[in-house]
Design a protein around this nucleic acid. Structure first.
Length: 303
DNA sequence: AGAGCTATTGCAACTGAAGC
DNA sequence: GCTTCAGTTGCAATAGCTCT
């Protein structure tokens, strides 16, 4: 409650020039005395809040601090709100709901404005199964409960896992669970869409300290590979969606060569196959061969 | 259940700035 | 100088939570 209010007061002061203790007290439904105590707490925490007595007085934040820190300007607040709204679709949560309402309360600009941009992390269509899984994992994380599930690896192998869940992660277009895997006796990241038969085991665990980012990075296995692709003329525009413009070299006939570096893994092969008939792997030959073998297997299924 | 802690509230007395 | 407005501070009381 108090932390919420302190954060909210800071955001409000950054976005407003001056506000009286009475206004703050009314806004947060607390007494003026409480607001003064909050101001004192914020000052102790190093946030330079200044107060002016008398007529036209009030509470404000040092202008230099606004400039230096450059945090939570109205536009940034709008981005945060949009991002939280996007997450809410897949991760309904009452705390999140409250935070959103409070943030929206400060950003009055947002109310009567047309949607300038939308951030939506939810999959196309209603993925109730994903939402259900995420909620179950969230409950387990909150209560330090062990979870059990069957997991399909990159190499298409299914294993039964007992995991101490620590964090839910959104990376790229996918949701992941980071935790300590008792089978592998180490920290692991699991893609939620590959999890089946998820159940909460009421066995409690003591949280171990791990770094999700390290795990996500090492998940890219092997080294980056230098990839050269040839893309047909009619597909160039669409390819800008996947590769930076500077990696394109337009050839005389209108087609293009793309030179890029990318992590090599199963995902890359599937991605290249997904680009279909318009893109051809030129280098390295090894990847070209892998794609060829995969295509032959596909062909066998159809002919 | 009771102690201890923290957050909050209400009240009162005070200080300082600005306007008349 | 008086008045008004708004910040400042201290104190007692209350409520809710946690720990023993």
């Amino acid at each position: 409650m108090k932390i919420d209010r302190l954060l909210a007061i800071t955001i409000l002061l950054i976005n407003k020039e001056k506000v009286t203790a009475k206004e703050l007290a009314d806004n947060f439904e607390v007494s003026r005395r409480t607001i003064y105590r909050d101001v004192e707490t914020l000052n102790k925490a190093g946030i330079p809040i200044v107060t002016t007595k008398g007529v036209d007085g009030g509470i404000s934040i040092l202008e230099n601090y606004k400039m230096d820190k450059n945090i939570f300007k109205v536009e940034e607040l709008e981005t945060i709100i949009k991002a939280l709204e996007g997450v809410r679709k897949i991760l309904p949560d009452s705390d999140l709901e409250n935070t959103l309402e409070k943030l929206k309360g400060f950003n009055t600009d947002l109310e009567d404005k047309e949607e300038t941009f939308i951030i939506d992390y939810s999959p196309w269509g209603n993925d109730e199964e994903l939402t259900e899984k995420v909620n179950l994992i969230k409950k387990a994380i909150k209560n330090n409960y062990l979870i059990e599930f069957s997991y399909l690896s990159n190499k298409n192998q299914r294993t039964s896992r007992k995991v101490e869940p620590l964090t839910i992660i959104l990376k790229g277009h996918s949701w992941y669970i980071y935790g300590y895997c008792r089978l592998r006796e180490d920290f692991r990241v699991f893609r939620i869409s590959r999890i089946r038969d998820l159940t909460i085991n009421k066995e409690k665990f003591i949280r171990k300290k791990g770094t999700p980012q390290e795990c996500l990075d090492s998940n890219n296995i092997t080294d980056k590979v230098k990839l050269v692709l040839k893309v047909d003329k009619e597909y160039i525009e669409r390819s800008y969606e996947y590769f930076p413009r500077e990696s394109f070299e337009i050839l005389e006939g209108g087609s293009a060569i793309i030179r890029t570096e990318i992590w090599e893994n199963e995902w890359l092969y599937d991605f290249l196959l997904g680009l279909g008939e318009y893109i051809e792997v030129i280098e390295p030959m090894r990847i070209r061969d892998i794609i060829k073998v995969k295509l032959e297997k596909i062909l066998k299924k159809y002919f």
